[in-house]
Design a binder for these strands. Structure first.
Lengths: 118, 118
DNA sequence: CCGGATCCGCGCCGATACTG
DNA sequence: CAGTATCGGCGCGGATCCGG
């Protein structure tokens, strides 16, 4: 059992890292197939996408629905627990957007369409 | 200039990682000296504490005030920009607290006094 | 009391190739 | 289309010693 001194650390354990929060954020608008997510987040590799989704599922934030057919079809959607993070994720997103425009950090960060993002 | 496709990534760039958000969170209750922070977060090493504070300062979220005296005294406090993160940090903290008590993850995470935390 | 400097292990994350 | 397997770089974060 991992021990922390503050709930903040627990949340970070769950949506921290490079991709987890972002993937969850894009799932909030409705169920997505793996390939859709890959298209929305072009810079993620297939490996990291699958791994991220598995971690989110293990954390109980995302549910995985499989259709037994060919070609395979899998859809991911946020669970109720995952949905409960929606307002927070949106605030984090908005804050970052405003922050990037602060004169203090102007030229440090840029928000661009996915194709051009690093 | 770092490029992102979503403000969320920018925010994570600033409060992500193992310590940045946590240190900022504990600064919200008022200015703190280095040694105070070290006492509040015993598991952080001095190196990481200093490094974290410098990064937060470079991001414009924390201001560093030095008193020229012996023994040296330095105080850190959140800037206005840093303060603007306060509600979000609190929500992240509360969410993590509730999450740790979900039956789904019971036994996975525990929130304990700093001395026992890992 | 406060901070800098070095060394280094480990794990995150990426690239690539392959299966059903 | 969805997922697995393997290999490896690199940087975060930790331990420790040193200086003002």
């Amino acid at each position: 059992m991992k021990k922390f001194s503050c709930g903040f650390e627990v949340t970070m354990e769950v949506i921290g890292g490079k991709w987890k929060g972002l993937v969850l954020y894009f799932l909030m608008n409705g169920p997505k197939r793996t390939s859709e997510l890959k298209r929305i987040i072009p810079n993620i590799t297939q490996k990291m996408l699958i791994q991220t989704l598995k971690e989110l599922e293990a954390s109980g934030l995302v549910s995985r629905k499989m259709y037994n057919q060919v070609p395979p079809k899998v859809e991911y959607s946020p669970t109720e627990l995952g949905e409960s993070l929606k307002p927070i994720l949106q605030e984090l997103c908005q804050w970052g957007g405003h922050y990037a425009e602060q004169e203090y950090v102007e030229g440090e960060f840029e928000i661009v369409p996915p194709e051009e993002a690093s």
